[in-house]
Design a protein around this nucleic acid. Structure first.
Lengths: 112, 112
DNA sequence: CGGCATCCCGTCCGATACTG
DNA sequence: CAGTATCGGACGGGATGCCG
């Protein structure tokens, strides 16, 4: 594939974007979550269209699983896969990272 | 800001994209690197235009630093900042993650 | 409830060419 | 050597509305 295959690029590719990290974070801590429950829990600002698309991508990459109860009204749950759990380690660190706080100050440690 | 501020989203925002992880990885392990040296080391497939832009973004976010020797011909070096080093922890994990290998097999552990 | 259809915009990524 | 200029395509993200 690439000459300098670090693994970073691939991992980043899978998790990247504005929402996937947050979705995974929720599913990593909640067992099984329904669509709208997930939608609201994330921050209420993700549209169903976007959430739907991101979920599909995560499913395609094997990080999460879709469970359709085929009832009426519909009930669908999403769940992290064992594979998806491998993201827990670095998402955890990202969360703990002081990066967030620093960025929020909009003025990063400058040595100018 | 957001209701569910996990820190993940912010961190992801800063590191996201096709190249920034790789750039950081190189700079985390190399002290100071010159533009074309960096360009070649990454995999030779990043155009100077893209590399330039990604570097600018990383500088803006305070992750790396630009050192211009103001010589002729030009010599410029890029260096990770202490702040940028906070990415080392999860980039390290991403690299180690089996995710890369699994994805490469194109067929992820399916329980269908 | 759990989506998909449409349309739209801004950003990402890239090829090519050129410059001080 | 270290970039910038220009152009273009693909993708991400979102608003709105509709459907079984």
């Amino acid at each position: 594939m690439k000459e300098v295959e670090t693994g970073i690029d691939i991992t980043l590719e899978v998790v990247c974007g504005k929402w996937k990290g947050l979705i995974l974070w929720k599913l990593l801590h909640e067992e099984a979550v329904r669509f709208n429950e997930l939608r609201r829990s994330i921050d209420g600002d993700i549209s169903s269209r976007i959430l739907s698309r991101e979920l599909h991508k995560l499913i395609e990459d094997g990080l999460i699983e879709r469970i359709d109860y085929e009832t009426m009204p519909p009930k669908v749950e999403y769940q992290i896969t064992p594979y998806g759990q491998t993201t827990a380690s670095f998402l955890e660190i990202m969360k703990k990272s002081e990066m967030a706080d620093i960025i929020n100050e909009e003025e990063v440690e400058q040595k100018v």
